[in-house]
């Protein structure tokens, strides 16, 4: 009997440790609170160019993760990329919110950044975002830079070059 009690105790301790480890992994390492299974709504955005954005890339607003990209497809009618992404229902955004494809650091992964607009109507399931800004493609950026340099050389068009504004040049819509 005594031996059995001790064995049961040890098994209890072991199972507790295992569950604690799982809880630690879920809460501390994976951060279960960043909704992975929570309630979400899906929004669509169209881009001229999504760069190297991937499915499951994060969607952030003010740097906080609010959702994930769920699908990326190509529209053969308009020649645009159609990106679907889910946003946690806890985060409501105005209808005129803008979506940009941004890069984390210089070489990091790409994500969608949302900047809230001023509309009083909120986004709902299936809405399309109209204000979008495509990914920065490095080749385009360099091309732009060289073009500007060349333009600088001609005194006739002496206009202060805004090298850092390449992003704006690459944007659309």
């Amino acid at each position: 009997m005594n031996r059995n009690r001790l064995l049961d105790l040890w098994v209890g301790i072991f199972v507790m440790l295992g569950i604690l480890a799982l809880a630690f992994l879920a809460l501390r390492a994976a951060n279960a609170s960043t909704f992975s299974s929570g309630v979400t709504y899906t929004v669509q955005a169209r881009f001229d160019n999504v760069g190297s954005l991937k499915v499951r890339a994060p969607v952030r607003s003010a740097g906080v993760m609010v959702g994930r990209v769920s699908s990326i497809s190509f529209d053969p009618e308009t020649y645009e990329a159609v990106v679907q992404f889910t946003v946690a229902t806890a985060y409501q955004f105005p209808k005129d919110t803008a979506a940009k494809i941004l890069t984390a650091g210089l070489l990091g992964e790409q994500y969608i950044g949302l900047s809230a607009g001023g509309d009083t109507v909120m986004l709902k399931e299936g809405d399309v975002l109209h204000l979008t800004q495509s990914a920065v493609v490095l080749e385009t950026l360099i091309g732009q830079f060289l073009y500007n340099k060349a333009a600088e050389g001609k005194p006739a068009e002496s206009k202060p070059a805004e090298g850092g504004d390449a992003k704006g040049a690459a944007s659309s819509k």
Binding site: L22, L25, A26, R28, A29, A30, N31, A32, T34, S36, S37, R56, P58, M65
Partner: peptide, 19 residues
């Protein structure tokens, strides 16, 4: 250290698949 980990590790895709 922790926040980078938390933003990259997904509950379903990483933890659940591992389990």
């Amino acid at each position: 250290f922790w926040s980078q980990m938390q933003s990259a590790v997904d509950l379903r895709d990483d933890l659940l698949n591992g389990v």
